[in-house]
């Protein structure tokens, strides 16, 4: 066995580690650990903070993503607000309400829900890229990784909602009858419900862990959630069989409550129902997601 000149052999460990190729890195050779002695992990809250900051920074640094986030609400407003405006004449439509004002709470919730899909996609990227494998060998709790992704989704969602509302107001003349306070409350509710229901997509990502099938599955879940609800027409305007699904759909609760808030400015019992169904879904999905993340791959 011919060996290249080795830096030092096993029988003389005391000799200074010579640099193999005589490169100038010789002085940097010394592996030292400095003050890292006590570093053996941080609390779960701090883990969430560090990981969330990292994801948010990545989002801010990604110009293309920011531009898409700006354009998407414009397209949504145009597509749904203009094309579907004839639906204002559908049976059961509340009298005296502009279609845009009726639609906007639904768009708010859809957009907030989309953040869950984004969180799932980011998670799949981390899984594929291998970062999660490293985190799983470190003193980092899987649930902290997931919560950080969901919070990052919340930050992105908030930004997108602000953009959506600004465009609706400036370009399409959106003036909800519930006033600014009602609208702010509707936004907060949509973010809360969107965050909770977003765990469905995070759980999907943990089990599917590939971007393409994840998007297909997310679409499969998203479509019935949106269309089998009162997002675009009141439940009364739906065919009989769809009404049953719409009444069981947690999205319907969220939209109902957001609509109440933005149109009347008062919180009905719907708000509580929306928050409770949302939290119920999250409570169900979080352990499922953690299990999916921890499973061997």
């Amino acid at each position: 066995m011919t060996a290249p000149a080795a830096p030092s052999t096993a029988d003389d460990p005391g000799s200074p580690p010579a640099n193999a190729a005589g490169r100038s890195r010789a002085d940097a050779r010394g592996l030292s650990f400095g003050e890292s002695g006590g570093w053996c992990g941080i609390g779960a809250g701090a883990q969430v903070r560090v990981l969330t900051a990292r994801s948010v920074r990545a989002f801010v640094a990604d110009r293309r993503l920011l531009v898409v986030s700006l354009i998407e609400p414009l397209v949504m407003l145009t597509a749904f607000g203009q094309v579907l405006s004839g639906l204002a004449h559908a049976p059961g439509f509340p009298a005296g309400v502009r279609y845009l004002d009726f639609l906007l709470p639904a768009l708010l919730l859809t957009t907030a829900l989309q953040s869950g899909v984004q969180a799932g996609t980011g998670l799949v990227d981390d899984l594929r890229g291998g970062l999660l494998t490293r985190l799983r060998t470190m003193p980092v709790q899987p649930v902290a990784v997931l919560v950080a992704r969901s919070l990052d989704g919340l930050v992105r969602g908030t930004l997108r909602l602000v953009i959506l509302l600004t465009l609706a107001r400036c370009v399409f003349g959106h003036r909800p009858t519930g006033g600014a306070v009602g609208l702010a409350a509707a936004v907060a509710l949509c973010l809360a419900v969107g965050w909770s229901l977003g765990w469905v997509f995070i759980a999907l990502a943990c089990w599917i862990d590939r971007a393409e099938p994840l998007h297909a599955a997310a679409g499969l879940v998203m479509f019935p959630l949106m269309f089998a609800s009162d997002a675009f027409v009141p439940v009364a305007g739906l065919p009989e069989w769809l009404r049953w699904i719409a009444r069981a759909n947690p999205v319907t609760y969220g939209i109902d409550a957001a609509r109440d808030l933005s149109l009347t400015g008062t919180a009905g019992p719907g708000v509580l129902a929306a928050v409770i169904t949302g939290l119920a879904v999250a409570t169900l999905m979080i352990p499922l997601a953690v299990r999916g993340l921890a499973r061997p791959r």
Partner: peptide, 9 residues
């Protein structure tokens, strides 16, 4: 930096 911060630096 991410790894160091997660370890407690």
């Amino acid at each position: 930096l991410l790894v160091a911060r997660l370890l407690g630096a």
